[in-house]
Design a protein around this nucleic acid. Sequence first.
RNA 1: CGGGGCGUGGCGCAGUCCGGCUAGCGCGCUUCGUUCGGGUCGAAGAGGUCGUGGGUUCAAAUCCCGCCGCCCCGACCA
Length: 479
Amino acid sequence: MSQKLTSPNEDYAKWYNEIVYRADLAAQSPVRGCIIIKPYGYEIWEGIKASLDRRFKETGHQNAYFPLFIPQSYLKREAEHVEGFSPELAVVTVAGGKELEEPLVVRPTSETVIGEAFSQWIQSWRDLPLLLNQWANVVRWELRTRPFLRTTEFLWQEGHTAHATHDEAEEETLRMLDVYAAMAIEDAAIPVIRGLKSNVERFAGALRTYSIEAMMGDGKALQSGTSHNLGQNFAKAFDIKYLNKANELEYCWTTSWGLSTRMVGAVIMAHGDEVGLRLPPKLAPYQVVLVPVYKTEEERSRVLEVLHRLAAQLKAAGVRLHLDDREETPGFKFNDWEMRGVPVRLELGPKDLEKNSVVLARRDILGKEGKRFVPQDGVVQAIHDLLAEVQANLLAQATQFRDSRIHDVNSYDQLKQAIEASGWARGYWAGSDDDERRIKEETGATLRNFPLEGQPEDGVCFYTGKRGGGRVALFAKAY
RNA sequence: CGGGGCGUGGCGCAGUCCGGCUAGCGCGCUUCGUUCGGGUCGAAGAGGUCGUGGGUUCAAAUCCCGCCGCCCCGACCA
């Protein structure tokens, strides 16, 4: 059995692909660049989705659904927007056996249709703010695809809001960025850096774009969520206007923000190790897997009886679990579920029956150190605690890893060294768009964002030597 | 779009250069037995239009021509 996973240190891309398929997260689809998301992978997405959806509702948003097809002319109304998206559009020109009068674009994002709707729905300042979200699939004909990280069709949510003033829109943009960061940190156990995107990386048609950037196990950055202040660009293109209290017609200020199934890729790459996936308990489809150990048929039935009882207790306590009663050996199951990233394993065998105990083993600490014996009547509490520990430890490990690879740089040479060492470079920045592009060409690193936290004193730009107005930039190679 | 690789049972591959007889191997699958606290072992089975179309030949997975598809690496992107 060719069971050993490729080591991430040996070939990270291969390791990633193997995990995706072997952990049963996804399958290849018959269509180039698309994937079939299998139940185990989809449940991780559902966890992300549930967390975000709850947070969206808490911040006053409502869900709606807009059509998959967008009249081609809509895309053209916002100049920068078309330009940004036209190369990657899928367009329907024939339907019902006939050439369409106007081709329909399969949405790459929905600013345009939603903008058109907003223009009809918003008339008064009393209609504002309008806070909507939609869960949807979108299509972007990318040249190079990778499972979850970049697929031709992907699932995401896109929030779209309209406000009376620039400041309210900006506030919303940042609020939703914070929602993303909270989900990433609290649920996915992935530390992220919130920041402003550079002009070069800004969303087509936005005034300002913000992102959360996460570090993957190979030191590359992954933009895991984006939030745009669209200014009045789309309001002007789609005529989204309202009457203010002084009875004057004004353009709205709109925002949009999205987070996609790419986040599943982030979870894989932020936590995975040489054994396989390591899922944060809050997002794990199974938080606990129960593995019976027995010799005889008689032992089997006694062990399973206890396991069913414990499973019922755990379920009642809200724990997601799976009782693995396949006829494989325990050792096989241990390895199988470790590869699939289940945070906690509960073993129960004849010896435990005698002592009324169980063995708990944690995925984040392999081997003996990660195992402990607990009495059966304390299992629910013990698992509850253990899940919290694993969750916290994954975040701590990812944070430590990330921080150890962020290097403060004072010169271009230092940036090159940091990037060369598979890390991120952080330094004062006063360069131009062209400077930024040049760095990308020469080093492969892009300006990920200008971090929002910890705005420091003014400093000297590491690239141009100019005083930089206190702006710190983060450079990294990215997915 | 440029570079590289691949298409042979469910998966991973060998066989292709140098045509040849019932197309092999590992894993998985089914059944029986055995084992079971870190990837048990054994036996018996099931399963293949060799991507596709054409050509050469007594004979094609293998040679020739065309087509299709996928994967990987780079430039665009959440």
